[in-house]
Write a protein that binds this DNA or RNA. Structure first.
Lengths: 145, 145
DNA sequence: CTATTTATATTGATATATCAATTATATTTG
DNA sequence: CAAATATAATTGATATATCAATATAAATAG
């Protein structure tokens, strides 16, 4: 049984697409803010929109591991993007709050993020994007079973 | 300008899909071979099918950085999956050769890789997969410009 | 109410990602 | 041919990914 060239399959196109997008995103974000990564931007935006979520929930929203989130938050606190204080009702949890610097940063990167998405999806019809999303969700479900 | 929730866009579905697939792949591969990663498996398969390629070319085929490839190869040589010798005609290059252990490993993981792909794409029509691939390639091109 | 189980987060170990700087060798240009 | 340029790979620094083990606190069963 000869395996086909892995780089020829749709699954590798998925990998390639996300890598190219991340490269684009990082490049453009770096133009306006120097000390932040794409992942940290995403965390910032999510946290601003979802106050009072736990690290756990945050991890799920950004498709990351708990361990990764712990370390990202450490860094972001160190770089003054977030503050972290103990949750008063459940002492296992923490309150994650976006700082002033974090809020300013969000304002700076918002148009960049929009632009990146538009660039990546340029020339695709709404229908095409919807289909893409639909197919990807089927794959996600298949993998989870 | 309020940014939409990033997790709602097709681009994040791409990220989620590839992460779920990698998780599935790693889990199933670990069942038959313990000391190898998904990425290393891919490198093995590519190297068996493309003899005499440089690290550079290999990096492009697996969508990785040169630096990543250097470190992966170091590890794979250390774990006896590959041998690396200096290229006689261009002394900047190396000959990468899959070892006996590497070949045996490929035989072991081939059916697993097939099964993983089938599982991930289960229930999708050929047309649907082709469309997916096509749309992803548009995105890839958009990001590269 | 105590013992067990569950939930939240951290830590250690190892692998990979990415950028920038560097080394070594090849190729091209003047 | 010598100097400049280009190519292949490495290295250092830092960020993220993943698994397994652990610590702490909360919830629940008996």
């Amino acid at each position: 049984m000869k395996i086909e060239n892995p780089t020829g399959t749709a699954l590798y196109s998925i990998e390639k697409a996300i890598k190219e997008y991340r490269k684009l995103a990082q490049k453009n974000i770096a133009k306006v803010v120097k000390d932040i990564t794409v992942d940290q931007c995403l965390v910032l935006i999510i946290l601003e929109q979802n106050q009072n979520i736990s690290q756990n929930e945050l991890a799920n929203l950004v498709f990351k591991d708990n361990a990764s989130i712990t370390r990202m938050i450490e860094l972001m606190v160190k770089n003054d993007y977030l503050t972290r204080t103990i949750h008063s009702e459940d002492r296992r949890k923490f309150n994650l709050v976006v700082t002033e610097k974090g809020l300013k940063t969000i304002k700076l990167i918002e148009p960049v993020v929009q632009h990146n998405r538009e660039k990546a999806l340029h020339g695709l019809s709404l229908n095409e994007i919807a289909l893409l999303d639909q197919t990807l969700h089927k794959i996600i479900q298949n993998c989870k079973k």
